[in-house]
Amino acid sequence: MGSRVSAFKRFLHFFLKNPLTLFGIVLVFLFLVIALAAPVLAPYPDQGRGESLMTARLQAPSAEHLLGTDALGRDILSRILFGSRVSLKAALTVILIVIAVGTPLGIIAGYVGGVVDDVIMRISDLFLAFPSLLLAVAIVAALGPNLTNAMIALSVPWWPWYTRITRSQTLSLKERQFVDAARSVGVPAPKIMFRHILPNCITPVIVQATLDMGYIILALAGLSFLGLGSQPPTADWGVMISEGRSFILTHWWISTFPGVAILFSVLGFNLVGDGIAEVMNPKRRR
């Protein structure tokens, strides 16, 4: 009981010292809630899904449409709420892809070592040295502009980070007793890697994933803005900004609000990531 109270106290103390992290957590939480409950929260759910209302085109923000309407008469607030689902789903997919590719490679490289390690790490160096955005753009241009291809394109230069993390984690775990014990009783290598080492890699991987979420949301929105990601009538924030671009001098609200949505969701993940980095940095832990 006592320890739980002190844990809570530490928790509270941490947030008092780091109000930014708390703010970040609130933003991320809001983002998740909005993504899950968009159909309930949106004032015009059908318009959020893309239904047009040509009689209500290009209306400025008002009580009826808090953030105004776009060129097809759709409520921008509803579109933004629905857009959070696109962002969340896409960013999570990218993260899952890079984890699925990067993690096993890192464990194998770290555990097997030798030539296998060299080969895997050189290949990952290769991918890291690629100019990621340009590569993504080239891939999308090749495969055709849509969200799936944009996600694939972002994953290609990204997985090596996860290989590096899990490899170094594996290297340190390899020398631990429980691994030695398992090896000595003849547990086959694949089983050791995925039963014993993998679970211990999960924490750093999740931390890295949180740090990456914001960047991925931003990169995906950027590709969509260029017309290389989601396509209309999808309610994607990047698409919404680019749709409003030619209206920027006459109907400012169309591009402005989706940008605010991107800013806040990315900010949320980055603040949380920053907080984690602050806590995790061993040199700074007093």
Partner: peptide, 13 residues
């Protein structure tokens, strides 16, 4: 952190 979270294309606009 806001600096790294801003969508450049939107900030420009």
């Amino acid at each position: 952190i806001t600096g790294v979270s801003l969508p450049a294309f939107w900030l420009g606009l």
